[in-house]
Amino acid sequence: MTEQNTQHIVLQTRNLSIGYSSKKSEKVLLESIDLDIKKGEFIALLGKNGAGKSTLLRTLSKVQNKLAGEITINQKKLNTYSQHELAKVMSVVLTERLPESQLTVFEIVALGRQPYTNWLDKLSREDIKKVLHALELTNVAHLKDQPFYKLSDGQLQRVLIARALAQDTEIILLDEPTAHLDIHHTYKVFSLLQELVKTTQKTILISTHEVNLALKLADSFVLIANEKTYSGNASELMEKNAFSSLFPEELISFNKNLQQFVINKN
């Protein structure tokens, strides 16, 4: 790898093993993961249910401990980041539902400014500007005084993305942000993320089951198939025949001409 290339890599893993460990046993889900996530790319993380997508995202965001190997963010090892330092480099959008509270849209997005606010959580003028900007980028500014429980799933997802944007980090990880959405709103979220990568130069890594949409819109891919990970852009992965190993081929196969997955009819 050349000197110039490494400069653009924001997130790197070397020989990473992920899974669950307890005192007595260790359950390895995936091992020897080598990823080079480039700055300013929209990356889709694809894999079957239970393949380890969420575990990988949780490990990359330090919610869960890695089993072995190295994760570096901007050439600095992940475990040397404090929780607070990490919050300024990486933000997340999780699958879990928010607890039922009376927070408004503005307040949720403003919580994204916590890594920068003082001990009493006072929003500066700069903070408020960034919150409003994030609300506008995600087209939810008109909802800002609504309590979040009144929002539709599609609106709430955009609010959560706005919160991650307000956190002003280089990297945003999203765990299945379109899980509860119809095809129209799914497309809206995907194109929003693609747009954000273009305009803000952020690096966005998203785990998703929307394989065909991801193939159309993502810059590159991380594939988890048969307990192995593959990464690269579409043509590189097609060369390795990686896409076809994603699903059992007798049911769903990858059509190279269409660059889409198709369901096999018998």
Binding site: V63, M90, I108
Partner: peptide
Amino acid sequence: LGENYAKSLG
């Protein structure tokens, strides 16, 4: 926002 979001906010 829940414990995991709190962590991600530092």
